[in-house]
Design a protein around this nucleic acid. Structure first.
Lengths: 204, 204
DNA sequence: AAATGAACAATATTTTTATTTGTTCATTTA
DNA sequence: TAAATGAACAAATAAAAATATTGTTCATTT
C-alpha cells in the first residue's frame, strides 16, 4: 500500500466504523480489519486514533462543502445560487449516511453553539461562501443592502439549525417542506412594504 | 405558613438554589434552609424533589411568558407587536438571572431539538402567540400570506436559537445587534422584488 | 396545625480490581 | 527493503465493592 495514494481508503474505512460505533466504541482494530490489515500496520499510516478521527471527519466535511460549492458554481443567477446553496447542503447530508451517523454520535463536530469550534476553519469557509453570494446579490441589486458580515453569520446559524435537525430526526420529507418555507421567509420577508425598501438608507 | 398563600416563596427559594447548584447538586435541605425551615417541614408543601423542580421551572417559564404577552398586548400595531414579542422575550431572560442559570445547568428544559419536550404545553403556547400575531398581520394585510402553522414554528425555532445563545454566552450587547439584524432579515427579506409578491398566489 | 429531627432506604461518590484497547517495535514476509 | 505482523506493555475503560450523602417518612414536639 503506497502512502498518500490510498489514504482515502483509510478515511473511508474509518468513517464507516466511526459511523457504526462512534469514536469511543470504535477500535483501531475494527478499522484495520475493515481493510484486511492489522492495527500495527495501520499505525504506519496514521499518527494515532485521535488524529485519524480528526482527519477522517475533516475529510468528510470538506467533501460535503466541495459538493455544495460545485453545485453553486453551476448556477449563474445569484438568487438561484443562494437557493441552491441552501438546499444542496441539506440534501447532501441526508445522502451521506456515514457522515450523518458520525455527527449523531458526536454533536461536538458541528455544534449549534460552539464554545470552541473544532472545525472552525472549515465552517468559516462556509460562512465565506454565503458572504460572497450576498455580496454578489447586493452588487447586482438582486438583494437588499444588508450587513454581509452579520447576515452571513445569521444565515449560517439558521442553516446549521436545519442541518442538525435533519440528521437528528429522519423526517426528511417534512423537514424539506419546513426548510423550503424558511428559505422563502428569509428571502422574501414577512412584512409587506414598498419595493424600494433597503435599496438605499433613505430617510423616513 | 399557610399553603397556597406562600407557595411562591418556596418556588423563589428553590429557583435560587437550583440556579446556584443545578438539580443534582442542590439538596432539599439547602432549599429549606434558605427559608429557615427544615427539610421535613418542606415536605408538607411539596411532593418530592423532582416535582418541586418541575413546578419551580414551570412557574418561572410561565412568568417569563406572561411578561412577553403583557408587553405584546400593550401594542396595537401588528408589526410592532411582532417586534416587541421578539425583543421582549430575549430581554426578559437576560434579566432573570436565576432562570437563566437554571437553563444553563439543564439545557433539557428548553432544548433546541426536543426529542420529548418536558414543557411542551408552555412552548406550544408561545408558538400560538406567534401564530396569532401572524394571523392578525395577514388579516390586516401588513404581513405576506404565509402558512401560519409552519411559519410560527419556524420563528419559534429561530427565536429559541437566540434565547439559547443569549443565556449560554453572556455577550448580550453583541447578541442584541445580531438579533436585531435577524428580525430585520425575517421581516423584510433578503431579495428585492415587486411589492405585490405574496399578496395573492398569482400564477407566474 | 405546623414544625422538628431521628431513622432509613435510595442515590451518588469514591476506591479498588479487572478488562480492554491504543501504541510501539523487533521480527517476518513478499 | 518497504510493508506487514503480532507479541508486549502502558493507558484508558469498564465493572464491582465499599463508603458517604441525601431524599423521604413519621412519631413526637412546639
Amino acid at each position: 500500500m503506497r502512502k498518500k495514494e490510498n489514504i482515502e481508503t483509510i478515511y473511508t474505512a474509518a468513517l464507516k466504523i466511526f459511523a457504526k460505533f462512534g469514536y469511543q466504541k470504535a477500535t483501531v482494530e475494527d478499522i484495520a480489519k475493515t481493510m484486511n490489515m492489522t492495527k500495527g500496520n495501520l499505525y504506519l499510516y496514521v499518527k494515532n486514533k485521535k488524529a485519524l478521527y480528526r482527519e477522517t471527519v475533516s475529510w468528510a466535511l470538506q467533501k460535503w462543502q466541495f459538493r455544495v460549492a460545485t453545485a453553486v458554481d453551476r448556477e449563474t443567477d445569484v438568487k438561484r445560487r443562494f437557493e441552491v446553496m441552501c438546499f444542496k447542503a441539506v440534501e447532501y447530508l441526508s445522502q451521506d449516511d456515514h457522515l450523518r451517523r458520525v455527527l449523531i454520535h458526536d454533536p461536538e463536530i458541528f455544534p449549534m453553539f460552539p464554545e470552541k469550534d473544532p472545525f472552525e476553519e472549515i465552517n468559516q469557509n462556509s460562512v465565506l461562501m454565503i458572504k460572497t453570494i450576498l455580496e454578489q446579490g447586493i452588487e447586482e441589486k438582486a438583494f437588499r443592502k444588508v450587513n454581509t458580515e452579520r447576515v452571513s453569520e445569521i444565515i449560517f446559524l439558521i442553516y446549521k439549525m436545519f442541518i442538525i435537525r435533519t440528521y437528528i430526526k429522519r423526517e426528511t420529507e417534512f423537514m424539506q417542506q419546513v426548510f423550503a418555507e424558511t428559505v422563502e421567509l428569509v428571502t422574501h420577508g414577512l412584512f409587506m412594504e414598498s419595493p424600494l425598501m433597503g435599496v438605499e438608507k433613505t430617510g423616513t
